[in-house]
Structures are given as C-alpha cells and as structure tokens.
Nucleic acid binder design. Structure first.
Lengths: 237, 237
DNA sequence: TTAACATTGATACAATTTGCGACAATTAAT
DNA sequence: ATTAATTGTCGCAAATTGTATCAATGTTAA
C-alpha cells in the first residue's frame, strides 16, 4: 500500500470545508481541515502536507498572508479559493506564491484535475530515508537497515515499524509525543476509534531496547499524554 | 545491438539549444536540433524520435501549437521549456499533451532525470535503453548489456527485467518505492489484484547482487511500503 | 482512604504482507 | 516447430502489524 497524498483544507466555512474533505477522501487523498489561519499553521508545523487548499477570504489573519508564509517557508504548493471572481486577487494570489486558484462555487472535478496537475509538478518527496545514524544510550541506530548495534558490538534487528518509531523518537528527545502524532509520523495515518496500534509498537520496541522492559527508562510513558524518549541523542556524520 | 534514444531539441535560442544537445550526447543520447517549429515539423516527419524537448516561447508558430500537433498525431512525448515561471502556461502545457515541463534556467541533471523517467513510461520502442553506467556497492552496472562487473573483475549476467529493476532502484537511492510504482517503471503496466511479480524480480535480483540474500543489505524491504536501495550511487560519464 | 473511572501494559490471536519454491505462461533463440 | 530462457502466477510458511481482552496502574471525587 502506498502513502496517500495529504491535503490541508483551510476554510472558515464548514459547509465548504467538510464536504470538500469528504470528496477528497473519496478520491484517494488524505485530508485534514483547519477553520482558520492559526489552526492551519499548527497543522503545517506538526504534519507534512503535499498540498494546501486555502480560502483567501477569512476573518482574522488574511489567507494571502498565510499563503505567503507557506511559500516563503518552502512549504507545500497552495491552491487558492476566492469567493468572488476578483481578478486583482487572482493576480496577487499567483504572485504571492500560490500555484493555482479557483473561484467559488467551483466544480469539484475541476479542483481534482488541478490538484493532480500540481501534485505531478511537485513530485512527492517520497519517503526518502535520511541515512543518518544516531547514538543513544549506548546504542547506534541504523535506519537504513532498521537495526541497532550496541556498544559491545552485538546487533539487534528491528522491524520496519519499530525502526520508524525509533527514528521519530530520536527526532524528538525529551518531547512528549501523543499517540495521534506518533501514528501519523510512524504509519502516516490517522487514528481510528480506540486505536492502540502505537501502544503495541512501543511495547515491542521496549522489549528490544530497554534494559528492563518492565520499568522502561528510555521510552517513558506520560500518563494521559503519550510517550517520550528520555535520553540524549548524538547524531553522527 | 542497441539503439540510442533520439531526442529532438526545439529552441530558437542557440545558447540553449547547442549546449543542451552537447550535454545529452555526452550522456548517451542522440540529439537533433531545430531552431523553430517549422524545422521541428520537418525533422519529425523525416525521422523517428523518442522524445521532444520544446521551448514554448518561440517566434512564429507558437510552441504550444506544435506540442498539441505532436501529441494529436501520436508523436513522441514532449517536455516543455518555459522561459518564465508562468504558472498558467504550465497548466495549459500539461493539458495540451506535454509529459513534463521545466522552467529556464534549469538544472541539466534534473532534465536528464526527467528524460529518463519519461522514456521509461514510454517503453514502446524495441531495444532502446538509457545508456548510463553507474557504480554502487563495489559493482558497476551496464544497462546496455544488462550485466554487472564487480570490483574484483568478475562479471554477472542479469536478465533484462532484473537490469531494469536495478536501473530504477539506482535512479532512486534511499527512496521507498512501492510495488505499483516499481511495476510501472520496470514493466510499464498497472498492477493487477494480488500482483506479486515485482516481489519475484526483487527476490531474483537479490540472489545475484546481495552478499547474503537471506538478510539483504542493498535492497531493503520497507514493510507495507515497498523496497528501497540502501547504498550510494555514483554516475559515470 | 476508598470507590469509580480512565488509561496503559501484556498477552493472545487475527489480518495483512512478504519470501520463495514450484510450476505455468510467455517470449526469445535455434 | 522445438527448445531454452525469462517472466508471471500460485500457494504456503514466516514475519509483521493490528485488534480484542483483561489485568494493572494512575487519577479523580467522595
């Protein structure tokens, strides 16, 4: 199964936002919604998106500002939605870093076509593995071959999922990561109801790397919050 | 005996056209130049090309018209060159039948990469192969004769399928390629239900190039994701 | 403190995905 | 047309991941 493209929808109008997300999901995308620019920034910081669909007419921070911010920060391509056929806005929008625009009301199929064209132009940075090895707690993690070498030389095989989880934890030492975020970063999907998949992966990884899996010292549980890696991490060149 | 891919370059600017032809020839292609749309039509009638690189901003007949004509007449795939980052033109260009586009100034290596991708997508020609030799993990891959020469001098015969798979992997080191994409790039077809053809080719290639095929180090499995080449690749001129 | 509740850990099991040998189908060579 | 080589399909075992369940543990309210 291959990763779905993840699209962020930013629109204050729920009757646009939600049907649109539904439609995109039906057509093979992963969609996340934000009701305003602030929410959008939050999502963009936490998660990786391949495309942003952005209504420029929003209360509070203007959509155009957000668009500019996204493109200035090397973010994903942006499709603008405008409520009126305002030619000035269109031009400004494209000059501000947007890849395309649509005027509401729009044809969903046309939006779909434009999305596909743009995604083709911005080939998804497929899961490129950073071949970077890191040391932690007397162990060396090799994310390429998903295995660990201890200081005493013994080797330890990880599964793909365990290795990805470890990579995420090593990216965020001493930071509490909740299950939803971990699931996103490790498996690239959103949690379903009562989703305990991550707990399992944590448990399995603990069994392999903890000195005493019964009382974990590296991957500690933050009750009600998530998990945290509690050790220093050294990145090797 | 093999045949080089024949590429037609259409650009009125000599300082683009000629270095580009030179560069392509250096990299194992056959290149022909045209300074305008009329010349291009002439060439296209007389000779068979596997690819056209076309500047859309040209005097006289517009490049877009030529592009349309080529794709309408079941001609070779087209890569558009645009002088400015004109987003509208881009969209129109792709809708008009172009396979890809680049904005000038472009990175020659990026163009090369895109050329190879497109040529793989159009494998209808008989025996044409991107003739690029690359070194990896102490081995030299020769896609023309689909064989491998190890640093110690011993040689290794591959089947054409194995060689194509290796080429695709060498194109994307450290990237996870899912089965669908691999099948597309290697065999040029869509996967049918429960299609395991790629798994087999991977298995067969592993037996030939892995030190220990039981625990692969070069072609790594990413569970639920696909396969990945986990070694550096050096392209030889 | 204890009772009630929510969250987490551990185990078993189910579902999915992969490795690979065997064989069939296809393609190329003679 | 026969034969050989290559590629695709099938099937089963192994590996990996997800789900269900219950025990253990933390939290909150009386």
């Amino acid at each position: 199964m291959h990763q779905l493209h993840h699209i962020l929808i930013v629109d204050d109008a729920r009757d646009i936002r939600e049907p649109l997300a539904q439609y995109l999901k039906k057509n093979g995308f992963r969609a996340t919604m934000a009701a305003n620019a602030k929410e959008a920034r939050q999502h963009l910081k936490e998660t990786k998106f391949e495309l942003v669909i952005l209504d420029i007419m929003m209360p509070g921070e203007d959509g155009l500002q957000l668009c500019q911010w996204v493109s200035n920060n090397d973010g994903p391509p942006v499709i603008l939605l405008t409520a009126v056929a305002d030619d000035v806005s269109k031009v400004v929008g494209l000059e501000i870093g947007a890849e395309d625009y649509l005027t509401k009301p729009f044809n969903p199929r046309e939006l779909l076509a434009r999305i596909k064209i743009i995604l083709r132009r911005f080939p998804k940075q497929d899961d490129t593995i950073t071949p970077i090895q890191r040391k932690f707690a007397g162990m060396l993690h090799d994310p390429l071959h998903h295995k660990i070498t201890r200081d005493n030389g013994t080797e330890l095989e990880l599964t793909t999922g365990e290795s990805r989880l470890l990579s995420v934890l090593l990216d965020n030492p001493f930071k509490i990561l909740d299950r939803s975020k971990l699931l996103d970063l490790v498996a690239g999907r959103e949690p379903k109801a009562y989703d305990r998949a991550i707990d399992n992966t944590v448990s399995r990884l603990r069994k392999k790397i903890e000195r005493d899996p019964k009382s974990p010292e590296l991957i500690v549980t933050k009750w009600g919050g998530g998990y945290m890696l509690a050790c220093d991490v050294e990145t090797l060149l």
